[in-house]
Structure formats: structure tokens, C-alpha cells
Design a protein around this nucleic acid. Structure first.
Lengths: 244, 244
DNA sequence: CCGTAAGGCGTACGCTGTACACTTGTGACG
DNA sequence: CGTCACAAGTGTACAGCGTACGCCTTACGG
């Protein structure tokens, strides 16, 4: 109630308000529907007014990612490297789930902003503090890849448009026919997809527990990191081995 | 020389020609510069003519991905599962390096086409034939994630625009100053980034061997898969353990 | 109180994907 | 060979995008 939106004087725009409104809008409408014009409308302002606060749309997206990063928990102070990494990654994952647009936004960024560099620096710091050589820390961070941000490359999760018009519900017969056709065309996919969902009666896909899959892969990698770390792995020695 | 492009009768358009020209154009211009209009121009045709051969731009991109998939080697016949997967993934990687646009195109696809399903099915088939339970095969494919397509999600590889205007070459003093600033702001990144590039004098980034990083992560995962496979891992048992 | 700079506005341009109605080319069949 | 039907290609048009540029107006420091 500090300022009325009607009447004479309007709330002044600023970068934070622009970024936060953009985040909220992307949360609701999806990233594809977020345009400068739509955002301006949401802020009750003419499109070009935004350009006094962000350089261009790229800068807007960079700013949105920085808002996201601020939501990720800082490194846990007392934890060993493995738990520190694990907790941080899972916290990042939670932030990404609050903001479904973020995966695409992060991936589409061309160059890292300071906030992003800081985020990555803190990861490197955890590994180094845990006794990793810079060499191993380097390769290990590459191996983590996007998982550092809390997502695996899940293709076809269908979350592009939130609440996209679902296809009309199929009759049981149509479902059975579809299943039979899938089974004929892609028997292995059907086998593999139906394995992990006894509890869930749905046809292929969307029956599996994303969180479980994510942690499965994350822990598999962390296990590998730990093993290499313990046995004093170094890339020089591997390259030598490959050459010899 | 079968048909002249000038004179009266023009070469007839068809889906293949559209898709292959689109692929070639994306290879040269980058995916962002590939518009229906630009593609039509390349084919010496009016933009709307394309719509007789592809439903819309989404369909065009789907088709381009299918062209890509056809370039990936089929599973090696005699190999054990581990080599079969490894070879296939590395072949996919080569295809992706020939077509830098493909990573983004694959990631942006909302729903899998038959060609994509077939590709994934063959992966599942390799694991199952190698004696993996459907359960383990499922989780393992999730863990591979995008790596199945030959890419890790490398953020900020700067390959968005091919031959983007490079910043003017910095003087040695400017480079040194920049390095000093990086070292102050992001000491861990500098430590980790400079570790793996004694041969290459460049400042942070782009000095590391992408192929090595990719295989490092891939083999780390394959090692993990192998271990779980040997010890008869099952998700049920893990969940029970977590609960108990 | 006023000058100045920052904030917000309006207009305009070139680009995008694609809907719709039209003409032209081509191959099959009487 | 003539005709007819359908596929292929054209032209125009629209709504939406990011954003360059110039002007007005508001808020604040001297």
C-alpha cells in the first residue's frame, strides 16, 4: 500500500522490479511467451521503457538467471566435499523446479555473467577444499556438466508450454492399440519404460520418478569422483597410458 | 547436371531436398540464422512453397534431426554392450560435431519423432542384450541423458554464432590485468582452469580438450554401470534401503 | 527555483512464422 | 491427343517480435 498504482504518480521502474516480474511471468506463461512487449504490459509500461533498465533481451535473461542463482543455497559450511556438492546440486535442482524456464534459459546463455562465474567458482572451491587436485577438479566439473545446475538433459519432458492443450483422453481400446503398436515398433523402450513403474499404470513415459533418476546419476558420478580421488587419479597418467 | 537450374523447368522440390538444404544452411549460418525465408531463398523458391513439404518450422527441425540420426553408425554387431554403447555414443558425437546446431535443435524438440524413438530403442536393446535388467537399463539410460546424443551440456561454449565477431585482440598488458582480476574474483576457477592446459598458453576457458572431457565422463558412467550390473543392482533394493 | 539527467513514451523498421486464396505445372486416363 | 484433377509453387497479408531514435516529463541536487 505504499504507493497507489492508479492516480497520478506511478511506481518507478528499476532493474530488480523488471527482473522479478520477468521471472514471475516466465513461471506462469513459460519462457516462450515472455516477450519484451508482454513484460512491459505486465509492468504497465511501454515496451521501450524496459530498455532503460536492461540492455536487451539477452541481458534480461542473464538477469533472470541471476535471480535464480540467488535462490540456491550457499555451500553448507561444515560438510565434507561430497555432501557439500550433493546438497548444493540438489538445492539448485529445487530452484530449477520452481522455475521451469530456467533450464532453457541457462543453456541458451552464450557467456557467463559474474553471478554464474561466482557460482561455478564456489563449486571448484568445494572440490579443491576437499583435497582434489586442480586437474581432477577440472575434469570432474566437466563430468558433472549441467547436473551442476540441477538438471539432466531430459529430452522430451514436454514442459515447454505449461498447460499445453492435452490430447483428448483416449479410450481404453485406443490405449491398448497404441501400446501394442509401441510394443511392436519399439519393444526395448517398452520393456525398459514399463520396468520402473509397477505402481503407476500409465503407458510409456512420465511414469518414472525424476528425482530418483537425477540422484541416481548424481550419486553414480560422485561415487566415481570419490574413487578417482582416493586412488590419486591424474589426467597425465591416463593420457600416458593411452599413448603407451 | 541432370537438370538445369535456369531456363524454363525448375528442379522439383521435395522433403529430402528441403531438409538437406536446411541442414547445410544451418551448418554454415548457424541455427539462429536459419529462417523459413532464408531457406526458401536458398532453394530459389517462395517461402510458402516450403509448407507443401514440411508442416511448419517444428516439423522442419524434427526432419533435420532425423537427417542427423541417419549419420550415426548403427550398433556394432559383434561388440559387448559396453563397447557397443561407447562406439555408438562416440559416433553420435562425431555427427554432432559436424552439425553444431544439432545440440540445440535436439534439446528444443518437444516430442520424439519415430526416428528418435528408434534410436533410443536401439540403445535400450544394447543394454538388454548385455544382460541388464529392464530396471537397471532404465536408470542407466536416464543417467546417460544427453550424453547418449554425444554431448554433455557444456554451458558457454560460445558456439552460438559461428564466426561471431571476436573482441579485438588484447594487448599482453590487458591480458595480464584481466588474468589478475579473474584470479582475485574467481581464484578457484583460475586454479582449475589453468591446471589442464600446460600445453596451451591461453587464459581461462577453451584450452581444454573437449573430446577428453567427454570420454572421461562417459567412461566414468560406463564404469559405474558395469559395477552396478555385476553386483545385481536393483532400484527396489535401493529404495528399500533408503526407507529402512 | 531551476537545470539537468534519468525515466518513460511514440513511432517506425525490418524481421519472423504462417494463413488463405490464387495460378501453374504435371502425370493419368479416356 | 485432350482433358481433368491434384500437387506444387506464388502472392498477399497479418500479427507478433526485438529494438533504434527522438521527444516529452518527471524527480532531484545545487
Amino acid at each position: 500500500m505504499s504507493q497507489k498504482t492508479d492516480g497520478r504518480s506511478r511506481v518507478r521502474l528499476n532493474r530488480s522490479r523488471v527482473l522479478e516480474t520477468a521471472v514471475a511471468l516466465a513461471d506462469t506463461l513459460g519462457i516462450d511467451a515472455l516477450s519484451m512487449r508482454r513484460l512491459a504490459q505486465e509492468l504497465d509500461v511501454v515496451p521501450m521503457a524496459l530498455y532503460k533498465h536492461v540492455a536487451d533481451k539477452e541481458d534480461l535473461l542473464d538477469g533472470m538467471v541471476e535471480v535464480l542463482i540467488r535462490e540456491i543455497d550457499p555451500p553448507a559450511p561444515g560438510a565434507d566435499w561430497r555432501n557439500a556438492i550433493r546438497l548444493r546440486v540438489l538445492s539448485a535442482r529445487q530452484a530449477l523446479q520452481r522455475h521451469p524456464w530456467a533450464r532453457q534459459a541457462i543453456e541458451s546463455r552464450a557467456r557467463p555473467t559474474p553471478a554464474v562465474l561466482e557460482y561455478q567458482d564456489s563449486f571448484a572451491g568445494i572440490f579443491l577444499a576437499g583435497g582434489f587436485t586442480p586437474d581432477l577438479a577440472h575434469h570432474v566439473m566437466h563430468a558433472l556438466g549441467g547436473r551442476m545446475w540441477g538438471f539432466t538433459q531430459e529430452l522430451f519432458d514436454g514442459s515447454a508450454a505449461p498447460a499445453a492443450e492435452a490430447p483428448p483422453p483416449l479410450t481404453p481400446e485406443a490405449q491398448a492399440a497404441m501400446f501394442a503398436q509401441m510394443q511392436e515398433l519399439y519393444p526395448n523402450i517398452v520393456t525398459v519404460a514399463t520396468a520402473a513403474q509397477h505402481d503407476d499404470g500409465s503407458v510409456v513415459g512420465h511414469g518414472c520418478d525424476d528425482q530418483f533418476e537425477f540422484e541416481f546419476a548424481l550419486d553414480l558420478l560422485l561415487d566415481g569422483f570419490e574413487r578417482l580421488h582416493r586412488q590419486g587419479w591424474s589426467s597425465a597418467q591416463v593420457r600416458k597410458q593411452a599413448a603407451g
